[in-house]
C-alpha cells in the first residue's frame, strides 16, 4: 500500500513538473511513465543489494535509454523527456539531510552526507553519459536508416 502511494506520487510529481515547464503534450504520458520506471528500478535494486549508488546508476539508465528511443520516435529533443523522467531520482533528500547536519553543527555527519550526495549525483551523471553516447552512436544512425526506408517506400 505504501509503495503504491509512493509510486502514484512519483508519477504525478513528474507529470506536474513537466506541466510547470510547459512540456509538449505528446511527451506528457511517456516521460512520467519513464520517471516511474526509473524510480521503481531504483527502489528494487536498492532493496535487493542495499547499494544506493548502483541503484541510482541503473535507475537513471532505465529512465534515460527508453527516453532516447522515444524522443526519436515522436521527434522531440531527448532532453525534453530525460529532464522530466530523471527528476524523481534527484538527491534532494540527501542535500537536505546534509544541510540539517551542518545546521546542527554536526560536521562529521554533514560531510559524510554531502560526499554521499556527490557520489550519488556522479552515478546519475555516468548513467546520463552512457545513454547519451548510446543515443548518439547507435540510435541516430539506426533511425536515419529507418526514416530513409520510410521515405523510399512512399515513392
Amino acid at each position: 500500500m505504501e509503495l503504491l502511494i509512493t509510486l502514484t506520487a512519483t508519477f504525478f510529481a513528474s507529470l506536474f513538473f513537466g506541466l510547470s515547464l510547459s512540456a509538449p503534450k505528446r511527451t506528457l504520458f511517456v516521460a512520467p511513465v519513464l520517471g516511474l520506471t526509473g524510480y521503481l528500478v531504483f527502489t528494487l535494486i536498492n532493496n535487493a543489494t542495499g547499494s544506493e549508488y548502483s541503484a541510482a546508476f541503473f535507475g537513471t539508465l532505465a529512465a534515460c535509454i527508453p527516453a532516447e528511443v522515444f524522443a526519436r520516435i515522436i521527434k522531440t529533443p531527448a532532453t525534453v523527456i530525460i529532464f522530466i523522467s530523471v527528476i524523481p531520482l534527484v538527491p534532494g533528500m540527501m542535500l537536505y539531510q546534509s544541510m540539517l547536519f551542518f545546521a546542527q553543527n554536526n560536521f562529521t555527519s554533514g560531510t559524510y552526507e554531502i560526499i554521499r550526495t556527490l557520489v550519488y549525483s556522479g552515478c546519475m551523471a555516468i548513467a546520463i553519459t552512457v545513454s547519451t553516447v548510446l543515443g548518439k552512436q547507435l540510435l541516430t544512425p539506426l533511425f536515419k536508416r529507418i526514416n530513409a526506408k520510410k521515405i523510399g517506400s512512399k515513392h
Binding site: I128, T129, K136
Partner: peptide, 24 residues
C-alpha cells in the same frame, strides 16, 4: 515539506545539458 519545496528548484536541466554539451 522543505524537500518537496526544493525539488523543482534543483538544477536538473543545467546538469543534463552540461553533460550532453561536454559529450558533443
Amino acid at each position: 515539506i522543505i524537500i518537496g519545496g526544493i525539488m523543482p528548484l534543483l538544477p536538473g536541466l543545467a546538469t543534463i545539458n552540461a553533460i550532453r554539451d561536454t559529450l558533443y
